[in-house]
Amino acid sequence: MLTIDELVEFCGATAVVVPDPGVEVTGCYTSDLLSDVMANAPEDCVLVTVQNHRNTVAVATLVGALVIMVCHDREIPEEMITAASNEGVAILKTPLNQYHTSARIYRAFGS
């Protein structure tokens, strides 16, 4: 179980939208293909992606992902922020790439 604060700390991330600071993720899924996320992402996970797009929020909501971690510090467009607030999905962003972010989250789970 990882809290938003732990994700922020381990990935050197910035919190962009946090509708519920109390959520805890139980898994991680790394993908930039929304169809893949839709098909394979586990519930209550943190989604690691570079897709800074409103549709990412929609897909996260569908599969029950709680947090979207956007890599490469890509700018989060206003409409994505609005969608996340409405859907209750948190958005964090990190300067790391998907590989390093995944490795950090793995270490966070182990700690």
Binding site: D32, L33, L34, S35, V50, Q51, N52, H53, N55, R74, E75, P77
Partner: peptide
């Protein structure tokens, strides 16, 4: 981040 791509193009790994 500006994109006009549809989901089909995104599914091919482009259009981000």
């Amino acid at each position: 981040g500006s994109s006009t791509a549809n989901d089909w193009i995104r599914s091919l790994g482009f259009g981000a």
